[in-house]
Simulated assay, not measured.
Amino acid sequence: MLPDYYPYIRDTITITDRLNEFCTRPSIGPVFLIGRIVKHEAGCNLRATANRVIIVADVYDGTNGMIDASASSRGGPGGTVTVMCRRSINARVNASGGYGAAGAAGTNGVPGTPGYHSDGYWETVTDPVTGETRDVWHPDVDIPGADPTNGGQGGPGGPGGNGGSITFTSIKDTTPPDLSAAGGVGGPGGPGGTAAQGPYSEGSADGEPGVDGPWGADGQVNVITLAEADYVAGLRPLLDSTGPSYANYWAPYRIATGEYFYHLYNPNVPDGAEYGALAGIEFKRALELQPDNVDALRLQRQLVGFAPAPGAVWVGGGTNEKCAS
């Protein structure tokens, strides 16, 4: 069951249809998706139009889907998407404006009428002063015929929606991100009305089509590549940008995840050796958000030695050594 609050924090977040429901619920602020890894279920795009979506992750993997913030209505604007990740893979974000609505059809032409001679006719008129009515005889008149009318011009097409906004920040991109916030195409002009049909329609012409609507304005696409130190410095400002300190939500979560990996770490078990590196990374990431967090510092110091990188060995206090014996 998905929670009823933001942010949505997991070690690994998989974009599914169920998560899309969570992201599109009414919200007074942006939806934060925060995790070590954010990826897509095969064929599942993240729909991001009703709310601004902010993704913060160590790795954003768009291999199986994309972030679709394109307009959800005719002539509507694209959405707003922010992605901040250490590394991206096959990232695709579309925040294009919607197509303009088609113009209305012009009115159809009306057949003409033949002229004729009348020996006379009665007409009831009302006195504008007294309000009394009386019948008036019009003797011996010629009634002129009416020419047929042409079809009317079609209505103009609606304007295309403006493109949205994409801010994509990373340290490294395995593949260049594919980002678009183009303005939407203007709607086609409506068709002209048809010429008058039937008797007394000779000379009537079809109406001209309406003019196409204007394109929407292109949105903004900001691609930012940062060094490690600058990336870390920018995390808290983004996580805390809406008021609540989501950095203070994520740091304890990363510590708890690191402690879970910490207890799984066993260098003598083939599937257990990798957990030392994972635990060390989680404690390090937590300390980037809360440098004085005593739990992260304590657990980091207790971690049994392992090689997080070639040539580097971290020798800890050995409190979890029983797991490795």
Rank of each mutant, 00 (worst) to 15 (best):
L226H: 01
L226R: 00
A227E: 14
E228K: 04
A229T: 07
A229H: 04
D230A: 14
D230L: 06
D230K: 05
Y231A: 07
V232A: 12
V232P: 01
A233R: 05
G234I: 01
L235M: 10
L235T: 08
L235P: 08
R236P: 03
R236N: 07
P237N: 09
L238G: 06
L238V: 01
L239P: 07
D240I: 06
D240N: 14
S241Y: 05
T242N: 08
T242S: 05
T242D: 10
G243E: 05
Y246H: 08
Y246T: 04
A247K: 00
N248A: 14
N248K: 12
N248L: 14
Y249Q: 12
W250G: 11
W250N: 04
A251R: 03
A251W: 00
A251T: 03
P252G: 05
Y253S: 13
Y253M: 06
R254N: 13
R254M: 12
R254S: 11
I255C: 06
I255Q: 01
A256F: 05
A256C: 09
T257P: 02
T257R: 08
Y260N: 15
F261P: 00
Y262W: 10
L264S: 09
L264R: 11
Y265L: 04
N266K: 06
N266P: 07
P267V: 10
P267F: 12
N268F: 08
N268R: 13
V269R: 14
P270S: 14
D271T: 15
G272F: 07
A273Q: 09
E274C: 04
E274A: 11
Y275E: 09
Y275P: 04
Y275S: 11
A277H: 03
A277E: 02
L278F: 10
I281L: 10
I281S: 04
I281D: 07
E282L: 05
E282I: 09
E282Q: 15
E282M: 15
E282W: 02
E282F: 05
E282H: 15
F283K: 00
F283P: 03
F283Q: 00
K284L: 14
K284C: 12
R285P: 11
E288G: 08
E288I: 01
L289G: 07
L289C: 09
L289M: 07
Q290N: 12
P291E: 08
P291I: 03
D292Q: 11
D292W: 05
V294Y: 13
D295W: 02
D295I: 02
D295N: 11
D295M: 06
D295G: 04
A296Y: 10
L297V: 13
L297F: 02
L297P: 06
R298G: 12
R298I: 11
L299N: 09
L299D: 13
Q300F: 01
Q300I: 02
R301E: 15
R301S: 15
Q302R: 10
L303S: 02
V304A: 08
V304R: 00
F306Y: 14
A307L: 03
A307T: 13
P310N: 09
G311Y: 02
G311I: 08
A312G: 10
A312R: 08
W314K: 02
W314Q: 05
W314F: 05
W314D: 06
V315Q: 15
G316R: 02
G317M: 03
G317Y: 02
